[in-house]
Amino acid sequence: MNAIDIRNVFKSYPEFTMQDVTLQLPEGMILGLIGENGSGKTTLIKLIMGMCKKDAGAIEVLGCSDLAGNPAMKEEIGVVPDEVFLPPFMKAEEIGVLAAKFYRSWDAARYRELLDMLRIPLKTPFKDLSKGNKMRCGFACALSHRPKLLILDEATAGLDPIVRDEILDLLTDFTRQEDHSILISSHIVSDLERVCDYVTFLHEGSVLLTQEKDLLKEECRKIVCSVRELSAIPQEALVGKRETPYGAECIVRKWGVPEGVNASPVSLEEIYVMMVKGEAHERAAI
């Protein structure tokens, strides 16, 4: 079963449109949603949570096709939004008391544990917490009601590397159970690089690519070549190129690498940037 199933979703705003977005998060997996600021990551998450209505298409979350009409399903979904809006005058422990009144399966001990682990100040009112601490508090809340699906929107932005590392630990720990899934959107690709099972590239409201991360990384190679060698590369093999007066830097699928040219492994970030900024913008179906 898919934890999240999005098919051909459209959503128009005056300055921005989400077009024909299709992606699936299979149960038990981690999907990394990569896209620059403004690419539609937050809009997609809002659509998933039923915070706004799609113009066309279908969205199913944990088997439910109308989350807005079935709010009890949200017991199973933990969300850490890009901005956490908890009552500003409440302290971390009071927030735990509040959350317990909303969730049937609130685990107060787990919440305390997470507050400790993430070093969240207990006696500071929420409004006085730093952005990082607010995020950490949001995390603690999201993980403490035993959800099956975690949705994180830029949750690691603005956090120091140590905390990001701890959070990645928490995330991988979360997926120990087979029915636990995670959708994590970020523009900090390095966090997602190792731990994701699937990646989806989002750009200007469209899906550029959605693929198993390992397959993507195995398929793509970075090469530097001359213009002549560049012309020998078949169009379907070219993921993106950047031409200079002296040659070209390209990302190419393994099978299209010209004879004798040195090919090196490439990171997700490089693939993404090359796909967006390089000159081959067609949808990639690897």
Partner: peptide
């Protein structure tokens, strides 16, 4: 202003509630 109603969208409650 505090964004509380926006946060409610993530909680297991309906807008009617």
């Amino acid at each position: 202003t505090t964004g509380w109603r926006r946060y409610c969208e993530l909680l297991p409650i309906s807008r009617k509630e």
